[in-house]
Every structure is written in C-alpha cells, then in structure tokens.
Amino acid sequence: EINVTSHGEEQAKHWIELAKRMNLDVEVEIHGDKIIITIK
C-alpha cells in the first residue's frame, strides 16, 4: 500500500493514471489543498 500526498491536481492525475495502468486500486481523499492518494 502506497500513500502519496499531492499538492497539485496534475501530480495527482499522474499517480492515478499510473495506478490504473498497473491495475491497482486507488482511493483519493481531498483535504483542502492536499490530495491524499492511497494505492493498494
């Protein structure tokens, strides 16, 4: 399980695309200006 804290939408999209390509599950939480991505 990987937790990524992203401070930008572009960076977040990059991680989500990467996870989808690798067929991994992704959870995205938004806390103000921080985007927390959990890849399982």
Rank of each mutant, 00 (worst) to 15 (best):
H7V: 12
L24K: 01
H31R: 12
E27P: 00
A19P: 11
Q11P: 06
L24V: 12
L24W: 11
K40Y: 03
I2F: 04
E29P: 00
L24M: 04
K13W: 13
I36F: 02
M22Q: 03
S6E: 10
N23Q: 14
I37L: 02
R21I: 15
E9F: 14
D25C: 13
E1A: 13
E9T: 06
E10P: 04
E29L: 09
I16Q: 10
D25P: 03
I37G: 00
D25V: 14
K34T: 08
N3L: 10
R21K: 10
Q11W: 15
I39M: 01
I37P: 00
K13Y: 11
K40V: 04
I16M: 05
I39L: 03
M22R: 01
I16A: 04
G8N: 10
T38W: 02
D25R: 14
T38R: 13
E17G: 03
E17C: 08
H31K: 07
V26M: 06
K13F: 12
M22D: 01
M22A: 03
H7P: 06
D25L: 10
V28L: 05
R21Y: 13
V4K: 08
V4I: 09
K20V: 15
L18A: 05
A19T: 08
W15H: 13
K13T: 05
H31V: 11
I30H: 02
K40H: 04
L18E: 03
H14L: 06
I39A: 01
I2N: 08
R21D: 13
I2D: 05
I16K: 03
I36M: 04
I36K: 04
T38V: 07
I39F: 01
G32F: 11
I30N: 02
E17I: 13
A12P: 07
K34D: 02
H14S: 08
A12E: 13
E1W: 10
L24H: 02
V28F: 06
N23R: 11
E29N: 04
I35D: 00
D33G: 05
T5S: 08
M22H: 03
G8S: 12
S6W: 03
V28K: 00
I30P: 01
I37V: 05
M22P: 04
V4L: 11
V28Y: 03
I37D: 00
D25Q: 10
V26E: 00
A19Q: 05
E9I: 14
I39R: 01
E29V: 11
E17K: 05
N3I: 14
I16N: 05
I36G: 01
K20H: 07
A19C: 15
A12H: 10
E29T: 12
G8Q: 09
A12Q: 04
I35V: 05
E27R: 11
I2L: 08
D25F: 12
L24F: 07
G32E: 10
S6N: 09
I16W: 12
M22G: 03
N23L: 15
T38N: 04
I39Q: 00
W15I: 15
I35K: 00
H14V: 08
E27V: 13
E1T: 13
D33N: 10
N23I: 15
L18R: 02
A19E: 14
I36Q: 02
I2W: 04
E27T: 14
W15A: 05
I2K: 10
D33C: 15
S6Y: 03
K40S: 04
D25E: 11
V28I: 12
S6A: 14
H31Y: 08
V28G: 00
Q11K: 09
G8W: 15
N23S: 08
I35L: 04
S6C: 15
E10K: 11
K40R: 09
K20S: 06
E17H: 05
H7Q: 10
Q11T: 11
E27Y: 10
K20F: 15
H31L: 09
T38C: 13
T5P: 06
I2M: 09
K40Q: 04
E17D: 11
G32N: 07
T5R: 06
R21W: 15
E27M: 13
H7D: 06
I39Y: 01
S6P: 07
V4A: 06
V4P: 07
A12W: 15
M22F: 08
E29A: 05
I39C: 06
I30R: 03
E9Y: 14
H14W: 09
E1R: 09
Q11D: 13
V4N: 05
D25H: 12
V26K: 00
I39K: 01
A19G: 04
S6T: 12
N23E: 04
V4S: 07
E9P: 09
I36T: 03
A12L: 15
S6L: 14
E27N: 06
I30C: 15
G32I: 09
I16P: 15
H7K: 07
D33Y: 02
V26C: 05
E10A: 10
K13E: 12
I35P: 00
I35G: 00
V26D: 00
H31I: 12
R21G: 12
E17R: 02
G32M: 08
A19H: 10
K13L: 05
V4E: 04
I16S: 02
E1V: 13
K13Q: 04
A19N: 13
L18S: 02
T5G: 04
L18I: 11
E9N: 06
H31G: 06
Q11S: 12
I2A: 07
E1F: 07
V28H: 01
N23M: 13
L18V: 09
I30K: 02
R21N: 08
I30L: 03
L24D: 01
I35Q: 01
A19D: 13
K20I: 15
V4F: 05
K40L: 03
E9H: 09
D33Q: 05
N3M: 12
